[in-house]
Design a protein around this nucleic acid. Structure first.
Length: 107
DNA sequence: CGGCTGACTCTGG
DNA sequence: TCCAGAGCCAGCC
């Protein structure tokens, strides 16, 4: 498979079912030769045309990555809540309940 | 070819 | 428990 890491990352994220969330580290470990930075950068460059559920990808703390003013972050949280994800008063999601069961494997 | 960048994660203090 | 620093690697000038 000569696909770029980005493509593999996108493919992996697309496997995330609705109502589930995955962390950057989780994705990074699923994808070979991939680091959390790659995932973050890949997601930052994710073209919406691919219909990637980028909002389902959060950091290891179970929180939304604060990358900008905050409106985008709130939008992401709203999207997650719309799928059934519940955030506590700290604004973090429960990985033990909503954590994606990564049953796939990239080779 | 060389250097900069990035929505993270981990370890130490 | 919280804060700060280093590491990592592909992609794009």
């Amino acid at each position: 498979m000569e696909k770029s890491v980005y493509q593999r990352i996108y493919n992996t994220i697309k496997q995330i079912p609705s109502g589930r969330v995955a962390s950057y580290g989780q994705i990074a470990r699923l994808v070979s030769n991939c680091t959390p930075r790659m995932v973050g950068y890949a997601l930052a460059a994710t073209p919406s045309e691919l219909n990637i559920p980028w909002h389902r990808v959060i950091n290891s703390q179970g929180k939304i990555s604060p990358r900008s003013s905050g409106e985008d972050t709130m939008l992401q949280q709203k999207l997650l809540e719309s799928e059934g994800i519940v955030f506590d008063i700290n604004g973090s999601a429960d990985f033990q309940k909503f954590g994606w069961k990564s049953t796939i494997s990239i080779k």
